[in-house]
């Protein structure tokens, strides 16, 4: 069975609504990306150097980054040679397979959250304005839906209105928010929140932090301290450190991932704002170089606009529409 048939079966066989939602959010992404791949395929009868060059450009425009694109296209060249593919008909599936393969790098990645039997602590980190606070709201809604009790910690005591913003999300979702006044020590907020979470015996505590650019040494130190304080209160915590990355961000996202990983041992990425026209291709490079998996994608500003990341669906969403159409014709 072909890769795409398998994939299609897998997807249609699983949770239909999730897939639809995911695909909906990706529609714009997919439309532009896939139509380009199709253009490409239509224009070239033969798989030659021009073809690969165009392909390179397509991927570069998805923010995948020079190095990863080169690597990928080199592998494709090799693959095409090996399988003796002479025309572009068969190439789309090879491209998608390769992308998924690069993403997986041989291992199956666990996109699930590392949930504990008692209290699970999740720390949300990232640069300014990427969607940390919003993601916390969405994630809380998701977990609550799954039957978990959730509490939020307003660890951004710096930005104007940040606490209020999280409080609004708390009200929306119907979960408690532990807060102190603006300007107080974020580590102290975390300390408070963990004690409250233990007292109330909640399942999950999600901690917000202020946005910070990764080159601000003081702010990164502060974040390390917050991380440490949480670890002191509960061994092994935080159990997840989620880095929010804006899909609109270009190559700087790689440096973000690296620096935040060094400071807080990031366990997963949330790729936000994927409902726009940006492709977020840099996550391929991040996966490739830093081995951090994407766990969720943000597809809007609403409460249910957070979906688990599935590399196959992601790539499927980017490439498969064209194939599907062909199949129906």
């Amino acid at each position: 069975m072909s890769f795409f048939k398998k994939l299609k079966e897998k997807i249609t066989g699983t949770n239909e609504t999730v897939t639809e939602k995911f695909k909906d959010g990706l529609t714009k992404t997919r439309d532009s990306f896939t139509s380009k791949v199709n253009d490409l395929v239509a224009r070239f009868r033969e798989v030659d150097e021009d073809f690969f060059e165009e392909l390179e450009e397509l991927l570069l425009q998805a923010d995948v980054g020079v190095e990863t694109v080169m690597e990928l296209v080199d592998q494709l060249r090799w693959e095409v040679k090996r399988k003796n593919i002479k025309n572009t008909d068969g190439i789309q599936s090879v491209i998608s397979e390769k992308l998924v393969e690069i993403y997986k790098a041989g291992e199956e990645l666990d996109a699930n959250l590392n949930m504990q039997d008692d209290l699970t602590v999740i720390l949300m980190v990232g640069v300014n304005g990427v969607g940390k606070t919003t993601t916390i709201g969405k994630l809380a809604a998701r977990l609550k839906e799954e039957g978990k009790t959730v509490m939020l910690a307003a660890g951004d005591t710096f930005r104007a209105g940040a606490i209020d913003q999280l409080v609004v999300w708390g009200e929306r979702v119907g979960v408690e928010v532990i807060r102190q006044s603006e300007g107080s020590d974020p580590a102290a907020v975390m300390y408070d929140a963990i004690r409250a979470a233990k007292n109330r015996k909640v399942d999950v505590l999600i901690c917000d932090t202020a946005g910070r650019l990764q080159n601000k040494v003081n702010l990164m130190n502060e974040l390390e301290k917050v991380h440490r304080v949480i670890g002191k209160e509960i061994e092994g915590a935080p159990h997840e450190v989620l880095l929010a990355l804006d899909a609109t961000t270009g190559q700087n996202a790689l440096i973000q991932a690296q620096t935040f990983k060094e400071a807080t041992n990031v366990t997963g990425i949330v790729l936000t704002k994927l409902d726009g026209t940006a492709k977020g291709g840099i996550v391929l490079a991040i996966r490739n170089k830093l081995n951090i998996p994407v766990k969720f994608v943000g597809l809007g500003e609403g409460m249910d606009d957070l979906q688990p990341f599935d590399p196959e669906k992601y790539v499927y969403g980017l490439f498969a529409e064209g194939l599907e159409e062909e199949a129906w014709e």
Binding site: A160, G161, A162, Q165, W169, E182, E301
Partner: peptide
């Protein structure tokens, strides 16, 4: 009027 607490954010800035 859409983003949660967007108004408070601007009001806080105004106060500052």
């Amino acid at each position: 009027i859409y983003r949660p607490a967007a108004i408070q954010q601007l009001e806080t800035i105004g106060k500052q």
